[in-house]
Nucleic acid binder design. Structure first.
Lengths: 109, 109
DNA sequence: AAAAGATGTTAGATTTCCTTACGCAAGTAT
DNA sequence: ATACTTGCGTAAGGAAATCTAACATCTTTT
C-alpha cells in the first residue's frame, strides 16, 4: 500500500560519514539541525542517523549558506518545496483515485 | 567515464546499523567476513563500513546458512556469480565499443 | 551599540566498535 | 568412537566515534 522507502530515505548514516560525504563540519551539521533544516533519526543510544536524501539536502543547504542565505530563509524555502512536493503527490493520488473509480485498477505490489 | 557508484554501493553503514537491517548478530557479520563472504571498507580508525548491496548480500547468505549451506560453499557461489556479472558487463562494454566505432557515439555525462 | 547568526574549540561523559580469547554444540572426518 | 571443523555466544579491555554544554570569536542584522 504505502510506497516502499527506498535506500535513499533510509536513515543509516552516522554524522562522521556525513561529514566526509558533505565536507561540512560536525558542528555545522548539528547546527543546521538546531535551526530545523534537517531531521536525523536517533539510535537507541542517542546517535544521529541520516539518509542519502539528507546528504543531498545538506549539500544544497551548504550552497545557499555560501551564497549568504541565512538558515532562517533556507528553512522557509525548504518548507515551500515540501509543500510543493506534497501537492504533487496529492494530485497524483487524486488522479489515481479517479482511475481506480472508473476502471477499478487494483493495487499491484 | 566510469559508472557512477550509486548509493547502493557506497560503504557508509556501521556494523550496528547492519545488525538492525539484517537481523544478524555482529558476531555473525564479522564471522562471514572472516570466511571471506563479505568485504567492508574501514574508517581511518578501523571501523567497518558496509553498503546497501552488502545488506542484500548478507540476507542471502543468512538464508543459505539457514538451509544448512556452509560458508565454504557459499563463497564459491558468490565467486561464480561475480564472474557471471563481470561477463555481462564485458559483453555490454564490447557492444558499446562496436556502437562507438560505427557511430562515434560520444560519452555524455 | 546590542542582539542574533554562524561557526571553532574544548571537556567530560556515553555509546559504539574493535580484537582476542575461551567455550560449546553439532557436524564431519579419521 | 575420537578428534577436528564449523558456526556461533559471550566476556574483557581498549580505542574510536559521538553526545551535550559551554565559552569564544567574528560577522551580520536590527
Amino acid at each position: 500500500m504505502d510506497k516502499d522507502i527506498s535506500y535513499k530515505d533510509k536513515k543509516v548514516i552516522s554524522i562522521g560519514v556525513m561529514r566526509e560525504l558533505t565536507g561540512l563540519s560536525e558542528r555545522q551539521i548539528r547546527y543546521y539541525e538546531e535551526r530545523k533544516l534537517i531531521f536525523p533519526e536517533r539510535s537507541s543510544g542517542g546517535n544521529r542517523k541520516y539518509s542519502f536524501s539528507d546528504v543531498e539536502l545538506l549539500m544544497e543547504i551548504a550552497n545557499k549558506i555560501e551564497d549568504g542565505v541565512q538558515t532562517f530563509e533556507i528553512r522557509q524555502e525548504i518548507v515551500k518545496e515540501k509543500k510543493k512536493e506534497e501537492q504533487k503527490a496529492i494530485r497524483k493520488k487524486m488522479l489515481q483515485g479517479q482511475l481506480n473509480a472508473q476502471f477499478g485498477i487494483k493495487n499491484y505490489k
